[in-house]
Design a protein around this nucleic acid. Structure first.
Length: 565
RNA sequence: CGAGGUGUGGCUCAGUUUGGUAGAGCACUACGUUCGGGACGUAGGGGCCGGAGGUUCAAAUCCUCUCACCUCGACCA
């Protein structure tokens, strides 16, 4: 691309309403522009990066035996009603009516449609397995779009779906896709970890997430400092200490005016939070249930939801709680609360605890969980925390933050059963097809790369996804010798399939250098005064000094750099 | 959905408290000087101040409604 007369611009200032390094750099370099909250335009330069990432994903999908196709975005809502996901997605699904008032949705993900398409092909066990995928815009009405391309409402996803006869077949298909995913993120040079995760609205048996490690990540990754344990916080199992803390004593009321939170109580009594019993009331599919856990642990709503196989787990308003229980918010305790009580594993043996008296301004002490707390169920309902024991090896737990760039699911038969995707086995009995689904957020991956690869001057694209590989700076666009040398190099590189930018704008050199760095082109060639001695300058975006190179060697040198990157 | 904030030229913002008919920097145009790391000077062009209604002789400024965007929280594959 010659910059003159092309749709190319950069901004010198940060955008006022971008909130992350990656979104600022992508906006400043003219690759994307926000269209409305959580919706972005991809401009020519940005689109090239997107397509490059897409191509890497495509190559790995094809290598894994997947076939590309394309589904519509506009889908009859009935299909999502049938699978129960209109409810599961709730307000996150974009809904609209056609002119006859028939309800449609903009597809948030496509398990249903792929299952329906698969019915065309699947009759017998001989028709399985197979694997199909697409790149397509997905729509999700996120409550709070954030961080540029990281959390958006319309985004391009590569979604793949595998179809097998049984779980053994799924294991094989899943393994292939899992490896393909590793290849993709390895090729992109991302620093990522793979964690076990909740299956959420997708359902099924297993979910693993590919998480790009970065500070603005919205997911907490739970890792072990000794073994390879890695899990999303949502599902990381807490190994309860099982200690028998304290001696049983008589319950005593203590006056604790205005000490409503664990922090205030700690301040007031001078006791460590682990000696408090925190009592939280959740509305689980409409039922008010109390959850008792140590003062130093957070409740985990995903675990609670699983415990009751519930669709919704929400924290009710204080008034609602007081209406439905005998408790007083701020002074809640599990004794005589009047509703079902669930105890966290880690408090079951504790015999000397402090908890709310269900009476304003009072707590009680010497509470023995085995003696005094009448719980219906116990289980693991809290978040693991840093410093806890690793559930796998007993090592120490550490946290990192991650951006979920890929997700794989062993779905099982959830969708095939809902949509009657069955096959006849060898004995002529009918069985539901066993499915897997696999997503990669393309735009989000692009943002994650920028988050991990930038410096004070701008983006540093890896060679294989850079929008162009070489940026040719012509120092003086009016100097004929310089322009001719630059054009010659430009043509030679293009002929070799090495995409390059020729900056032939009437700009001062400083402007061109700054732009080259901002947009992150890996190789910069400067055509300047040295040209009269047949010399060019070469500089890499990743660093290092400017190198003088003869005109005759420049092309082979660039080829070598591109090849070895 | 709750709380807070912001909408003024392409971009970043001042002006709003105390109404008087719109500014700065960057970007853009012309000319000149300069020109190998976001040049300088001079002269220009471009905005009915998010929208609607109201108060007033007069509204970017005050009042009402509304829309959009942002932050924190809630929520969330």
């Amino acid at each position: 691309m010659k910059l003159k007369n092309q749709f190319f611009y950069t901004l010198r200032q940060e955008s006022a309403d971008e909130d992350s390094t990656s979104s600022n750099l992508l906006v400043r370099s003219g690759m994307i522009k926000k269209s409305s909250s959580g919706v972005y335009m991809f401009l020519p330069l940005g689109l090239r990066v997107l397509k490059n990432i897409e191509q890497i994903v495509r190559e790995e999908m094809e290598a894994a035996g997947a076939q590309e196709l394309m589904m519509p975005s506009l889908i009859h809502q009935e299909i999502y009603d049938k699978s129960g996901r209109s409810a599961a997605f709730g307000p996150s699904i974009f809904k609209l009516n056609d002119r006859y008032e028939r309800p449609y949705v903009l597809g948030p993900t496509h398990e249903e449609l792929f299952a329906i398409a698969a019915k065309m092909k699947v009759n017998s066990y001989k028709d399985l397995p197979f694997n199909i995928y697409q790149f397509q815009n997905k729509f999700r009405d996120e409550p709070r779009p954030r961080f540029g391309l990281i959390r958006v409402r319309e985004f391009i996803m590569k979604d793949a779906y595998t179809f097998d006869r049984d779980m053994e077949g799924l294991d094989v298909a899943y393994g292939k896709m899992f490896n393909a995913y590793k290849n993709v993120f390895d090729r992109l040079g991302l620093n990522y970890v793979i964690v076990k995760a909740d299956t959420g609205a997708m359902g099924g048996h297993l979910s693993e997430e590919f998480q790009a490690v970065c500070d603005i990540g919205e997911d907490i990754l739970v890792m072990c400092d000794e073994c390879d344990f890695a899990s999303n916080l949502e599902v990381a199992e807490v190994i309860s200490e099982g200690t028998e803390k304290g001696d049983e004593g008589e319950i005593e009321e203590i006056h604790t005016p205005n000490a409503k939170t664990i922090d205030e109580l700690q301040e007031f009594l001078g006791e460590h939070p682990e000696n408090f019993l925190k009592t939280l009331v959740y509305k689980v599919d409409g039922e008010f249930i109390a959850f008792v856990l140590p003062g130093n642990r957070q409740a985990n709503e995903v675990k609670i939801g699983k415990m009751f196989n519930a669709i919704s787990v929400e924290l009710p308003e204080p008034e609602e709680i007081e209406e439905h229980t005998n408790g007083v918010v701020g002074y809640m305790g599990p004794i005589d609360l009047g509703i079902k009580v669930v105890a966290d594993n880690s408090v079951l043996n504790n015999k000397s605890m402090i908890t709310g008296a269900n009476k304003k301004d009072y707590h009680i002490k010497n509470v023995s969980v085995p003696r005094d707390v009448k719980y219906t169920i116990s289980g693991d309902i809290s978040n693991i925390k840093e410093g806890d024991k690793c559930p796998k090896c007993g090592g120490k737990i550490i946290f990192k933050k991650g951006v979920e760039v890929g997700n794989t699911f062993k779905l099982g038969t959830k969708y095939s059963e809902a949509l009657d995707l069955n096959y006849a086995a060898a004995d002529n009995t009918l069985h539901p097809v066993v499915m897997g689904s696999y997503g990669i957020g393309i735009g989000r991956t692009m943002a994650a790369v920028v988050e991990q690869s930038n410096d004070e001057s701008g983006i540093v694209w890896p060679m294989n996804i850079a929008p162009y590989k070489v940026y040719i700076v012509v120092i003086k666009d009016t100097n004929q010798e310089q322009m001719e040398a630059a054009e010659k190099l430009y043509n030679e590189l293009n002929a070799l399939g090495i995409d390059c930018i020729l900056d032939d704008r009437k700009e001062r050199p400083g402007v061109k250098f700054k732009d080259a760095e901002l947009i992150g082109i890996p190789i910069r060639v400067t055509v300047g005064r040295g040209i009269s001695e047949g010399q060019l300058e070469l500089k890499l975006r990743t660093g290092g000094d400017v190198e003088d190179i003869g005109v005759s060697e420049i092309v082979s040198k660039i080829q070598e750099i591109v090849k070895n990157a």
